[in-house]
């Protein structure tokens, strides 16, 4: 595994976001966000729902079209109208809250379809890569199953393996554990932690504060479409400076002691 780890760390791409703006009609959800993620860095985006963190994440691979600002991902300028989006997205893995596995394909086919159709890999190579990544998420024996035969946690692990099979230089996670049963959250977080240790650049929208504190290099707190506070994970979560951050963390970390 060490060679894989090294090559992953070497290939890891960074993200530079500058003055990003996004509106839906007259509702401005991102009000000029600037944020850098260095190659190999793990950054967690936290904040109340509606704060724009998912929209920010979806702008990075252009699932949402920004209204202003620039995004650089690896060697690509995502916001350049001339950019080859498909080429760029091959390097950016995305994991969704609802998994979005392809239900008509087996677990193995979920992990090979884009390798074969997009990267034009031959079947043998695609299978080998898929198998390797399914083993990485602990599902090496599940290749022949269909997604609806798996638990939520297993499905999300397949979704991670599917993204990894494209050998991305950056991984985006959009609340990857929010749709899971509590007892399966841990298995998904464990894999993300492993991935982080291996040197993958990760941008993670999450409500799992313990994960953010332990795994993230940096935590960014967003509220109302702006970055309110950012810094080293342990400091932002352990000792927040901004009142809005303090208030949010108090509600999240100690939900039974909220004053109404």
């Amino acid at each position: 595994m060490t060679t894989t780890n090294n090559s992953m760390a070497e290939r890891a791409a960074g993200v530079e976001i500058s003055d990003l703006r996004k509106s839906y009609g007259s509702n401005e959800v991102l009000k000029g966000i600037s944020l850098d993620v260095r190659p190999g860095e793990v950054v967690c985006l936290i904040g109340p729902s509606g704060s724009g963190k998912s929209t920010l994440l979806r702008c990075v691979n252009l699932l949402e079209k920004p209204n202003g600002g620039t995004i650089h991902v690896g060697g690509f300028e995502a916001t350049d109208p001339e950019v080859n989006l498909d080429k760029m997205r091959q390097n950016v893995g995305m994991v969704f809250q609802q998994f979005n596995l392809f239900p008509h394909l087996t677990v193995l086919e979920n992990c090979t379809v884009a390798q074969i159709k997009v990267l034009k890999r031959d079947k043998a190579k695609a299978h080998a890569t898929a198998k390797l990544n399914l083993e990485r998420v602990g599902l090496g024996d599940f290749g022949g199953r269909y997604p609806d035969e798996l638990s939520g946690g297993q499905q999300q692990r397949v979704a991670i393996a599917r993204a990894l099979s494209m050998e991305p230089t950056l991984m985006l996670f959009d609340e990857p554990t929010s749709a899971l049963d509590p007892e399966t959250v841990g298995e998904v977080l464990a894999i993300m932690k492993k991935l982080a240790r291996e040197g993958m650049t990760m941008l993670v929208v999450t409500h799992e504060m313990a994960f953010a504190k332990e795994v993230a290099d940096r935590v960014v707190f967003m509220d109302g479409g702006v970055v309110v506070e950012e810094g080293v994970a342990a400091e932002v979560i352990g000792n927040p400076q901004q009142p809005r951050t303090q208030d949010f963390l108090r509600r999240v970390l100690d939900p039974t002691h909220v004053d109404i």
Binding site: D86, F96, Q98, L101, K117, L119
Partner: peptide, 22 residues
């Protein structure tokens, strides 16, 4: 579901390929 197209596109599939294969 729209998420199927999003997942396909985020794997680098062009729109027509996502339509045909997914």
């Amino acid at each position: 579901p729209k998420g199927q197209t999003e997942a396909a596109r985020s794997l680098g599939m062009p729109a027509w390929r996502a339509m045909v294969t997914i």
